[in-house]
Design a protein around this nucleic acid. Structure first.
Lengths: 316, 316
DNA sequence: TATATTTACGTAACTAGTTACGTAATTGAT
DNA sequence: ATCAATTACGTAACTAGTTACGTAAATATA
């Protein structure tokens, strides 16, 4: 398959399917060769029943199929008289399947086929430098730990966060600062008077009082903002506030990058600790704060109604 | 999948299918993640059309699918406006497919996804000690050279030929010698007088004249016979004749084992060359003779009507 | 003890491929 | 030049799985 060397790994699913087909097309004829009255697709079910009687769901779980698949296969094998079913007396939902006499005869007959096929495949495995059998097992384990979607998501985030630039606020970003914050505040809560004041006049309310604002740019566009407000408090030097990321730019790690940058800024300004207020319905935000190192704290009265959680972080 | 470590390699097809499923279930969501309007199953077709316009059959051949599969996929993509079709003017059967404007836009958009997926998979490959990608390729090559059925057949033949015993003729095998020969002669030709004589009285017609008869036993049963008839000829010492293997015991390499044994016997008896007569309609027999080392020869008149080919072999 | 949740499993409908088959166009052989 | 064979490709029916859903039984909870 020259094609798959050109397409790259993206087509691995397609390539796997093709190999599966190649391996399984012969299967029916192999069974015929040994005069075994078994459809290849019955084999996993048949094999589990060889060692022990089981219910539909148990078998399905064992072999990694869905239960309707096993249900169908058992139905087919029943019609051929290979297995028999019996409702469990203790639990009338359970349908216990066992090999019939004919089934056990097939189990005996299949032994030779079993050894020959095993040998043939093992011979193939020794002829290759990359062991397919072991490779499959390794992939099963890797995908079990983290599926392909998540792996790709991480790569995407990683690549895109490289395109994100964090810059200092200039009046050119006044509109972005206002709109990005308005967007999320009005979706989840209601704009309050304090909001309007600071969003309309960031210079007067934040910068001139010794605070800072950072802007996240993605391909030149402002897609996230975050402010640091100077506090008059014995314990906390700055408040992290007005953090907003455009929904269109989600999944690019922008929140984290902004957060990291604003903490660095706080430290550069001589701060020793950062405080913030939020609401527990903003779950992604809360988990971001934890990720940045914030811990829950109590006791400060908030000028915002929407606040129901307070967090703080010591700058090292 | 603990199950597959128990079943052994026989379930490799089933295991491969499961892995394929695991790899491909996420695919649809990955496309969604990048906002690409493409079904995963379209990808191989789409990809080939990216580099060049092609006909249905060409694409099918490229990607290893059947043409109806490509036909269906192209139909779906047409309805979405991703590709366009145009009958070839020079050959009105050919349906030339090309990417539409929308298709080309998708091709541009897909680039990022492509790199991310590639990276994610390549990262997985580095985390394993057995490279799945390379292993698949090796298997494709191996199966292309010799499919699984033939590999299993060989193992079967090998195992079964170990159960075959070649023994010297005794009167106990008189019936087998007659019946096995009668069986094939009367299916392909007609029994001739010479046949009756030698089959009814092997001692008088073969053994007492300095010839030999060998019998192949499979699990104790006589399933094949072969005779060596002393010739009065300047060039040839013995004639190989009356070779018969029961159809029930075919595929166990019995013909070859009998042949080898009879040549050894001829040598042991001091012979220098062996001659035989046969008919070209008996193709498996002819190819067996070639395999044993016989070559075509000419010129001897045969007492049998059915003979249309003569072969001989020098014993080293 | 009543009610909600979970479990076992059968049926129906869908999916992504296949083979089988028919038709029209082209190519090859005499 | 004609007739047979091959090729391109669409449609239909099949295959081996899936998800979705409904029902009955068992278990957990208030």
């Amino acid at each position: 398959m020259d094609f798959y060397n050109k397409t790259g790994k993206m087509a691995i699913g397609s390539r796997l399917r093709l190999l599966t087909d190649k391996v399984t097309t012969d299967a029916a004829q192999i069974y015929k060769l040994y005069d075994v009255e078994l459809l290849p697709k019955w084999f996993p079910v048949f094999y589990t029943l060889c060692s022990e009687d089981s219910t539909i769901t148990e078998v399905a779980h064992q072999i990694g199929h869905s239960h309707p698949s096993v249900s169908k296969i058992v139905g087919e094998m029943l019609r051929k008289g290979i297995v028999s079913e019996k409702k469990d007396k203790a639990d009338k939902r359970r349908n216990v399947i066992s090999l019939s006499k004919k089934g056990r005869a097939i189990a005996a007959k299949i032994q030779d086929q079993y050894t020959d096929v095993n040998e043939a495949i093992e011979e193939m495995l020794t002829q290759t430098t990359n062991d397919l059998w072991k490779a499959i097992e390794e992939w099963e384990i890797l995908l079990d730990r983290k599926n392909l979607l998540r792996r790709v998501q991480e790569k995407k985030k990683n690549r895109e966060s490289k395109k994100v630039k964090i810059v200092d606020y200039t009046p050119a970003y006044a509109k972005a600062f206002k709109e990005l914050n308005k967007e999320w505040i009005s979706t989840y809560f209601k704009m309050e008077t304090t909001d309007f004041k600071s969003l309309e006049n960031p210079k007067g309310y934040i910068l001139d009082k010794g605070g800072a604002i950072l802007v996240a740019l993605y391909e030149g566009e402002p897609v996230g903002v975050c402010a640091l407000i100077k506090m008059n408090h014995p314990e906390y030097s700055y408040e992290l506030a007005k953090m907003a990321v455009s929904p269109k730019a989600q999944g690019k790690n922008i929140g984290y990058l902004l957060g990291k940058a604003i903490l660095k800024k706080a430290k550069a300004l001589g701060g020793s600790s950062v405080y913030l207020e939020s609401n527990t319905i903003l779950k992604p935000a809360i988990s971001l704060y934890y990720k940045l190192g914030f811990q829950k704290t109590f006791g400060e009265p908030s000028p915002y109604e929407r606040c129901n959680i307070q967090m703080a972080l010591k700058l090292k």
